[in-house]
Simulated scan of single mutants.
Amino acid sequence: MAGLDTTKLLAARYRAAADRPYLASALYALTVVESERVPTMGVDRYWRCYVSPAFVDRTPVAELAGVWVHEVAHLLRDHHGRAGRLPAADQRDRLRVNVAQDCEINDDLLADGLALPPGRVEPRLFGLADGQLFEAYLPGLPAFPEIHDCGPGAHGQPVEWEAGGKGGPTRIGPAEADALRRRTAEEMRAHTRARGTLPGGWKRWADEVLEPAVDWRQMLAGAVREAAAWAAGAVDYTYRRPSRRGAALRGVVLPGLRRPLPRVAVVIDTSGSMGEEELGSALAEVTGVLREVGVRGNRVTVLACDADVRAVSRVAATEQITLDGGGGTDMRAGITAALAGPERPGVVIVLTDGCTPWPQEPVSCRVIAALIGPSAPPPPAWVETVRVPA
């Protein structure tokens, strides 16, 4: 690459990887792109690192190593993905978003003893505390008309010096990026076990990658909504609402199409191993979502089941549900009874601790299992699963 001191640039990357080997895989995944248009260094979402030859010439190797770590941190922390979930007004203020992201990164880098070029951004410059995520820093920052731009790999907005997404320099896709993040998090955890030292922000990030905190309520609500929408997708003909096309045919009445609400069966594991508090929480979530999508009253059948079906009821509120049982566990009986009813459900939701046999073959409707407890055994692959922590 003419004009770019490649030896110096790559020596700085080698130094960064040697001093912090847990970042080596991510650092060497970056593709270098020489650019006269980028002010210093920046990244895009495809893990391409754009480098100004003039910046490399005037920056010492130790500081270049720090910039390498800074830029790869934007990608490891998925800053562009997180920026895409900000309100639209914040997304448009890309430089302010970039400063907030730099605050999230640089406090860890400085605490780790990394050298960074003059003019670096850190939380204390704005009277903010260290150790926060950029989303927390953003409201406390002023507008920035001119400041270093780390590129679309940070703030997620297009810039004039970015290469095209297709063709051109090597690019890394989302699946490869996720694999790199997980591998780096595993290397960080191994480093912590061996040496016991890692900046707080990196440790928190690695823990979140390896043990993501998932809101089971959102997952369960999403699964129930999606299944209800799927079951309601079936249409049928009805003469109660004649087709508007019939107006063109004198003397002929054409049936219209209707989209019926689905019927839902909730099978509740009432065996002795089930905790009432967890059952109540999960059942409240299910009935709340069903009410939101318009499925209520006599369209919801609740079956209490241990080794056999103990009670079947149609309910409008959770207070009407009777949970009889306390013996063994066999959710097959509950699913079979739900499907054998006079009005076949489009969705069956099973609330259970998972210690049960399941039907060997997929049944003729959507089945969602809310598995209660961290050690609940998984159901067959054809059952949609949401884990509810005890």
Rank of each mutant, 00 (worst) to 15 (best):
N298P: 11
Q157W: 07
E176H: 03
E186H: 05
G246R: 03
A317K: 08
R15Q: 04
E104N: 09
R241D: 10
L249M: 08
E71T: 08
E36Q: 09
D236G: 13
T192N: 06
A265D: 13
P359A: 06
A2V: 04
P345A: 02
E34M: 05
Y46L: 12
L116H: 01
Y46H: 13
P145Q: 05
P342L: 11
H80N: 10
Q91K: 00
P374W: 12
E34R: 14
T329W: 05
A369Q: 03
V267T: 07
A129F: 00
G297P: 11
Q91T: 00
V267F: 03
P123Y: 00
V33T: 07
E135H: 08
R366M: 15
A232K: 07
V289T: 15
A311P: 01
R82F: 01
I372L: 14
W47M: 14
G173Q: 12
V159S: 12
R183T: 14
V43D: 08
P53A: 06
D306H: 08
G140R: 08
G297D: 13
L290M: 07
R48S: 09
P123D: 01
R120K: 10
R245S: 04
R225I: 09
E319A: 11
P123N: 07
A65F: 01
G196N: 11
N298R: 15
V67M: 02
C150F: 03
Q157R: 15
A89E: 06
V224W: 07
G173D: 15
A282M: 09
V61I: 11
E146H: 10
L303K: 11
L114Y: 02
V386T: 02
L133F: 04
F55M: 05
E34F: 00
F55N: 01
A129E: 12
D78T: 06
Y46R: 13
L64H: 01
P345M: 09
L133Y: 06
E226C: 08
P199A: 15
L86V: 03
A369P: 14
R245C: 00
T301E: 14
R182F: 07
L128I: 02
Y239K: 10
S271P: 08
P152D: 10
G66H: 01
A381C: 03
D330I: 09
W47G: 00
L109S: 02
R204T: 13
E278Q: 14
D269V: 05
L254E: 13
